[in-house]
């Protein structure tokens, strides 16, 4: 019986993942908007300090799945069943406010706070948490902006509005803002899809650096991007998890016909 259960969970899980430390464990997750079931009984494990990419055609529930991981689905009125464990703790039982400080999020469109300076944008999350020591804040601003590969470009204009820089810089500012509160997991919802190729490359290089410290889950439309940045890839199709495996294996020798068709561009 118990063995059977274990087997169930390991179905569709990458082989190598057994050697990893699991950060987030998702069991039988379904998501609803009203009565529409958007995600259907998905189980998968997300390893620590790795990049997991989620690919699939539009409307397959990638973003909804991602939002469930820090309960952002509640903001737009969704509900979920099943369970999600972060370090063994049920996230549905924790306070969403604290959960989101541990599981940060970067959105598709850069959304800096236009009424705040670049400096205040970076520390917005910290200030919410009641952090006001100027010296420590400036240290964190520099560290976060350096980590987001933005420091050299904005170090002289920290007082300017967060909306005055270019779209690519805005997105890196949003990443700096997210890592400033020192989360454990960063969720990225197509972070480069609104950006030009050069900014996209910068974001991808950044993801490569960030995974040394953070666990990253990234939703992307762009399969090359998934292949470039991720360690593991999950392929979603109409709300179901079709395949989840090592990125290399997924793109070289996909296990399922559906995956192969999607990756080679035959549909989607």
């Amino acid at each position: 019986m118990f063995e059977n259960q274990l087997n169930n969970i390991s179905i569709g899980q990458p082989d190598k993942i057994k050697d990893e430390k699991i950060k987030i464990s998702i069991n039988d997750l379904s998501s609803y908007f009203g009565k529409t079931k958007v995600i259907k009984n998905i189980s998968l494990n997300i390893p620590e300090k790795k990049v997991v990419a989620i690919i699939g055609p539009s409307g397959c529930g990638k973003s909804t799945f991602l939002r469930s991981l820090n309960r952002m689905h509640e903001v737009v009125g969704g509900t979920i069943t099943g369970s999600i464990y972060l370090d063994g703790e049920d996230i549905m039982k924790s306070d969403p406010v604290y959960l989101r400080r541990k599981v940060g999020m970067v959105f598709q469109k850069p959304n800096p706070f236009p009424t705040m300076s670049i400096f205040n944008n970076v520390v917005a999350g910290l200030k919410l948490n009641g952090f006001h020591n100027k010296k420590i804040l400036s240290e964190i601003v520099e560290k976060s902006l350096r980590q987001a590969a933005l420091w050299d470009e904005v170090k002289d204009i920290l007082h300017r509005s967060g909306a005055e820089i270019s779209g690519g810089q805005q997105q890196r500012l949003c990443i700096a803002r997210t890592i400033a509160i020192n989360p454990e997991v960063i969720l990225m919802d197509e972070p480069a899809s609104a950006l030009d190729p050069i900014s996209t490359t910068k974001i991808e290089e950044l993801i490569f650096e960030l995974k040394k410290e953070f666990t990253i889950v990234i939703v992307t439309h762009n399969m090359q991007q998934a292949a470039r940045v991720s360690d593991y890839t999950a392929f979603f199709y109409v709300g179901e998890l079709v395949e989840y495996s090592d990125t290399k294996k997924m793109f070289v020798a996909p296990g399922k016909k559906q995956t192969e068709d999607y990756i080679t561009g035959r549909f989607g």
Binding site: N70, M72, V75, V97, Y98, L99, R100, R101, G104, M105, F107, N111, P112, F113, A124, G125, L128, N129, C174, R177, T178, I181
Partner: peptide, 9 residues
């Protein structure tokens, strides 16, 4: 609003 929520507001 989402940006703020995602920062744990």
């Amino acid at each position: 609003r989402e940006a703020a929520y995602a920062l744990g507001a």
